[in-house]
Write a protein that binds this DNA or RNA. Structure first.
Lengths: 212, 212
DNA sequence: TAGATTGTTAATCGATTAACAATC
DNA sequence: TAGATTGTTAATCGATTAACAATC
């Protein structure tokens, strides 16, 4: 009940473990030690054991970890089986790219519908997902209970839309817009994918490389 | 010369400072103290001063920081003015979305060309950028000296393409594919944008929220 | 049983925060 | 000059790594 909060650093490594174990599983490998896993992933064995023991003892002394067991444990920790409802707002280039290519289901979400204001996309389907008018957002969420919203519309609408979504009971926001959503602006869980910041950081590193 | 390495945490905050200062600048604000900036950005004043002093003393006691001066200092630190050549590999949905919408120039790069294997896109232009045959990659880079490669092709080609790019003198890779590139696999600077890991982490948080 | 490897506690390291003298 | 705010050193906090007893 009163388990202490798991640090963000640990949470961000869980999907990496999951992906790696999934690969091992597909290659027919059934057991692995923290040392092997650490070598392959570029972590330390200590760190892997510490991370996993935030959630429970999944291994066995003298043996290691069962690949399939650990994979499914991590899947459960992340909640990948729950298949929560999701919607996407802004069916522009990026929105359509995500609808067309991204596997939401493997991340625990089912894409229910997309929304946009542009009359030339409203009414169309992208990869089987209906694009509806943004006006019908409230009505739709009330009827279908979406817990995640993917924001791929222009950045100047971020705050207003976020407010609306929170009022409608949306729990999480996957934010691709240029506007940040800080903890004091919303109670929803927010994960921001910041292309600009990512590339600027890379620019710095390339720069440094040149100097060294 | 022998300045000690700036930590990754600091580097990742630089673009945030830059963006914020840019906004202040556009709103006509000319000076700001570390405290004001900290309040607005949700950091501590100490941290901001520590971060900036990795690179030099840009402020003035009793006054604070000149917005425009600090903005341009950070821009220089990040190398945003240098306009290095960039190419993009994989002109699918995501690649075209980036070519069409993303402002590479504000991140210090000029997009020179895109490459793909599919005959239906080769020869077309996306937002003024030519899509060329992947066969002509080596020739093109030798002629135009691209320092950055944006990888938006399928994940199973990541390693092979990376090897090829490194041999051609490319310095940095902005990796959108599902395959990681670890430090022991390449000497290039790598920045990976991992959609799946990002959404899985959010899935965990939404999950936790429900339990609390 | 002996060997291996975990779970967990202790030590180390690095990053963040606090404090304050320097100075505009 | 007095007030404000930096640059910088010291203290704290948290995350990573090392060590080792428990145990399969």
């Amino acid at each position: 009940m009163t388990k202490r909060k798991v640090s963000d650093a640990v949470i961000r490594r869980l999907p990496k473990y999951y992906r790696y174990l999934d690969e091992l599983h597909e290659n027919g490998i059934t057991r692995i030690s923290s040392h092997q896993l650490a070598d392959e992933m570029g972590f330390t064995a200590s760190q892997i054991r510490q991370d996993l023991n935030c959630f429970g003892g999944f291994g066995q002394q003298g043996y290691g970890y069962g690949v399939e067991k650990l994979r499914s444990e991590i899947s459960a920790i992340l909640g990948l089986q729950d298949m929560r409802g999701a919607i996407l707002i802004g069916a522009g280039n990026l929105g359509r790219a995500l609808l067309g290519n991204f596997d939401f289901e493997s991340c625990g979400f089912r894409m229910l519908a997309a929304f946009d204001v542009a009359s030339e996309v409203v009414g169309k389907k992208v990869n089987g997902v209906d694009v509806l008018a943004l006006d019908s957002l409230d009505e739709f969420i009330k009827a279908h209970s979406a817990e995640l919203a993917v924001l791929t519309m222009p950045g100047d609408e971020t705050r207003e839309i976020a407010k609306r979504l929170e009022a409608l009971g949306v729990k999480g926001v996957w934010n691709f817009t240029s506007r940040e959503l800080r903890a004091d602006e919303t109670n929803m869980c927010v994960e921001t994918v910041h292309f600009t910041e990512s590339l600027m950081a890379l620019c710095y590193k390339v720069n440094e490389e040149g100097k060294a």
